[in-house]
């Protein structure tokens, strides 16, 4: 469904990703784990065409490299970035409507789906996002990405700074998106336990390189990795 091959990314002359390859099948949740600065956000930005890259990114066989981000979103990539990048002085509802910019025919259905997944967003529809809590912003961010009718959803650090209860809520939603809506989900996480609880397969990203990959079970058994990322 998503296939990344030999992707390198650059900020000016500085190289941030080195020959990264990964894939995700339709209806699968995979995770990219790594420390701060390992390149997880760069990887997602690169899929959206926001960095200079070499290598290939394919979505359902179609090459996305060289396309502008608006075209990539139109082809079915939704992105909930780490810092949310919401529109602070717009209401929750307007933030969601901006997310529907490329999928205007689906507004009713998508809005219904987002409100069903996050009932709080329906209650807070008229509130400006600048006045919301981190958890609510994460919901708006995910909701905005879903308003674009994505088939692939990229979620960067879904649990960062959130209370455990909210993390559980987010996890439930991500599973529902996979199981009920057939979405492919890629999450980037520092919180490896959260990642392993959701993902069927995991990639470890270190200093811009993939250093390990495997099923969640096999990686959990790797002692060196466990020491580095799982805190035991």
């Amino acid at each position: 469904m998503l296939e990344i091959q030999g992707l390198s990314a650059f900020y000016g002359r500085a190289q941030a990703l080195f020959d990264v390859s990964l894939r995700a099948e339709k209806g699968e949740i995979i995770a990219v784990i790594g420390a701060n600065g390992a390149g997880k956000s760069t990887l997602f930005d690169s899929v959206l065409g926001l960095t200079k890259t070499t290598g290939a990114v394919r979505l359902e066989g179609q090459d996305l490299t060289g396309q502008g981000s608006s075209e990539i979103v139109r082809r079915g990539v939704g992105y909930a970035p780490e810092r949310f990048n919401l529109f602070p002085y717009m209401t929750v509802r307007d933030n969601l409507l901006v997310g529907a910019y490329t999928a205007r025919g689906d507004i009713e259905t998508n809005l219904e789906m987002v409100h069903a997944l996050f009932p709080r967003l329906a209650e807070r529809a008229g509130q400006e996002t600048s006045t919301q809590s981190g958890g609510e912003r994460q919901m708006v961010s995910l909701g905005r990405a879903l308003m674009g009718s994505p088939r692939l959803l990229l979620v960067d650090e879904p649990t960062i700074g959130l209370a455990p209860k909210v993390c559980d809520e987010i996890a439930v939603v991500l599973r529902r998106l996979r199981d009920e809506f057939g979405l492919t989900v890629v999450i980037a996480e520092q919180n490896a336990n959260f990642a392993l609880s959701l993902a069927s397969r995991v990639y470890v990203l270190e200093s811009g390189r993939i250093t390990a990959e495997g099923t969640a079970e096999s990686l959990a058994k790797d002692e060196a990795l466990a020491a580095a990322y799982f805190g035991h």
Binding site: L50, S69, S70, N85, V98, Y101
Partner: peptide
């Protein structure tokens, strides 16, 4: 309007606008 909201979006957060598919 969609275009008007997109103008607000670009003025508030350029990256947020880009990942919403706004050119």
């Amino acid at each position: 309007t969609h275009t008007g909201r997109a103008m607000q979006a670009v003025s508030m957060d350029a990256k947020g606008a880009a990942i919403s598919g706004i050119d």
